[in-house]
């Protein structure tokens, strides 16, 4: 009776939903109410995630033209850095406007584009930069993403592109103009 386990599971899931016991585990519920763990929101600025300037606000000039990417955390308008979850890491890359796909030009600010720093394949968050091709490479499993074109997957096992974060410049300060375009991180089957 191989179908029995699955039938049973569906039945219980229906029951759980119908009873109003909602679907958030405690960890997720806490993450959404804690500004340190909540995902970036419009109006957030950015701070260095590591290195000598860790915690310092990122200026547009800090993002080198043509790469490599700079890893940052969002910081909300009250000054709370959203470093409570590593899923909030963002990479900033400055590219020539002529390099950017049209869809990315509207999301870029001063040539800077922003993506989730967490690979959609297995969750790694370090990046190698292929300077000649202006391509992001995940050193864990060699997925490559094209930041010029919405971080689409160029090669490798990643199932989908990196979520993009729209940017804007306000009084010379780099800010998020919205939220991530998709769920961040990888999704176990």
């Amino acid at each position: 009776m191989p179908s029995t386990p699955l039938t049973g599971r569906r039945a219980v899931l229906k029951g759980v939903v119908a009873s109003g016991i909602c679907c958030l585990t405690p960890d997720i519920a806490i993450a959404q109410s804690d500004p340190r763990s909540a995902r970036p929101q419009a109006g957030d600025r950015f701070v260095f995630a590591n290195g000598d300037r860790k915690g310092a606000v990122v200026r547009p000039d800090d993002v080198p033209m043509g790469g490599p990417p700079l890893t940052v955390y969002p910081q909300d308008t009250s000054g709370t850095t959203r470093d409570g979850s590593r899923l909030n890491q963002v990479i900033l890359i400055r590219l020539a406007a002529s390099d950017l796909a049209e869809t990315m030009r509207v999301q870029a600010a001063d040539g800077i584009v922003a993506y989730s720093a967490v690979c959609t394949h297995a969750g790694c968050d370090e990046w190698a930069w292929l300077g000649a091709q202006k391509m992001l490479k995940c050193p864990c499993h060699d997925s490559e993403f094209d930041p010029k074109d919405g971080a689409r997957v160029n090669v490798g096992p990643a199932p989908r592109r990196l979520p993009a974060l729209p940017l804007k410049l306000v009084d010379g300060v780099l800010l998020a103009a919205g939220s991530f375009s998709a769920r961040v991180g990888f999704q176990p089957a």
Binding site: L87, A122, G123, G185, F186
Partner: peptide, 18 residues
Amino acid sequence: GELLWRYARELPEDLVQA
């Protein structure tokens, strides 16, 4: 090949799987 039981683990969302 009859499936007798299945243990499914819910992994943390911030896990890295190198």
